[in-house]
């Protein structure tokens, strides 16, 4: 039957076209790094560095693909099947969530790499427009009535959760650890927030490209990105109290086994701790854990009072109390 052979030919053509789409079976190695929002520029610079290292060591050509988004949303995407070889997320809890809910990452992941698998750290600062027209010097200026605040959604972002906790820590310090007062403080803060983007870079776009708000609560590295992209247009305000943010990394055991990329994935993350990578991180505004590179990377990091996640009883406790469904954030934002 001619129409049947025609249909068969058509299906054959479709399958041939679909084949390269379905399977990426190149002889070379490909890694997928699922990361949080503002690391785009850093990993774009880091990946060629690692590729050169891996080539010299093994002769293999490695290509690293990136996916960026709010850290919580990215973690859930991995749980839902996003095929990551490594995750480089904004906080340990998001990797724990993958380990617990999907079993794809070994539960002892944090002890597999130095510094609790946190190759660089950061903190939370405030970014204001040129000349600081609203005179924002510290967190208490941010909650003043009529100040437009831009920060991301703590339900989806990672930096957004550090932002929340940094403000909360400030309020606790100011009010002799009075939780009720701290809660009032963050309530006032989020009352001033117009736009809750899903990740840190979305907030940056809202603040910079769309021109919304008077102050952006941001990662220190993101603040560097903004002031470098548009010199003179924005100023960084370092608050008196902030939080030591520890982005975490892990390889995804189940996926690297399936892809046969275990060695490369592990080497990729270990390479983050080398002086060359640390200097690069430092250049992009991340605080290096290898402090020896501090003098040679061209970025200076102001000293400020940094609390740690331990003061909130660790991430499991902080997540359950503040950011889980029905937690403090849901209560104060009236969802």
């Amino acid at each position: 039957m001619p129409n049947r052979s025609r249909a068969a030919a058509l299906i054959a053509i479709l399958l041939m076209l679909a084949a390269p789409v379905g399977a990426a079976d190149s002889p070379n190695l490909t890694l997928l790094n699922v990361s949080y929002d503002p690391t785009r520029e850093f990993y774009a610079a880091f990946n060629p560095l690692f590729a050169a290292y891996w080539k010299s060591k093994t002769g293999q050509t490695v290509t690293v693909n990136q996916s960026h988004g709010g850290s919580g949303a990215q973690a859930r995407a991995v749980i839902e099947g996003l095929d990551a070889d490594v995750v480089t997320l904004a906080l340990a809890y998001d990797i724990d969530a993958i380990a617990k809910k999907s079993g794809a990452i070994a539960t002892d992941w944090e002890s597999r790499l130095p510094h609790d698998s946190s190759p660089y750290t950061s903190t939370i600062v405030l970014v204001v427009r040129k000349g600081n027209p609203k005179h924002i010097r510290d967190w208490n200026d941010v909650v003043a009535p009529g100040i437009g605040v831009v920060t991301a959604n703590p339900k989806t972002g990672g930096g957004a959760r550090w932002n929340f906790l940094a403000a909360y820590a400030y309020a606790l310090k100011r009010n002799h650890n009075d939780d009720a007062k701290a809660r009032e403080f963050v309530t006032a803060l989020y009352k001033n927030v117009g736009v809750l983007d899903s990740g840190a870079r979305g907030s940056t776009t809202t603040f910079v490209e769309r021109g919304i708000g008077d102050v952006l609560v941001a990662w220190e590295n993101e603040a560097h990105f903004i002031t470098q992209a548009q010199p003179g247009a924005y100023e960084i305000v370092v608050p008196s109290v902030s939080i030591l943010a520890e982005p975490s990394v892990a390889w995804v055991d189940a996926n690297v086994q399936r892809h046969g990329t275990a060695a490369a994935a592990k080497a990729y993350l270990e390479f983050l701790y080398t002086p060359a990578a640390q200097r690069l991180a430092c250049k992009f505004g991340y605080r290096p854990t290898l402090t020896a590179v501090l003098g040679s990377c061209g970025t200076s990091f102001p000293r400020t009072d940094l609390v740690t996640i331990a003061s909130f009883g660790g991430w499991n406790s902080a997540q359950a109390r503040f950011f889980a469904d029905g937690g403090v954030f849901d209560q104060i934002s009236g969802k």
Binding site: G69, G70, G72, A73, R76, E80, N153, K155, T156, S198
Partner: peptide
């Protein structure tokens, strides 16, 4: 809808 989806 997209926001709710990103919150899973």
């Amino acid at each position: 809808i997209v926001t709710r989806l990103e919150e899973y």
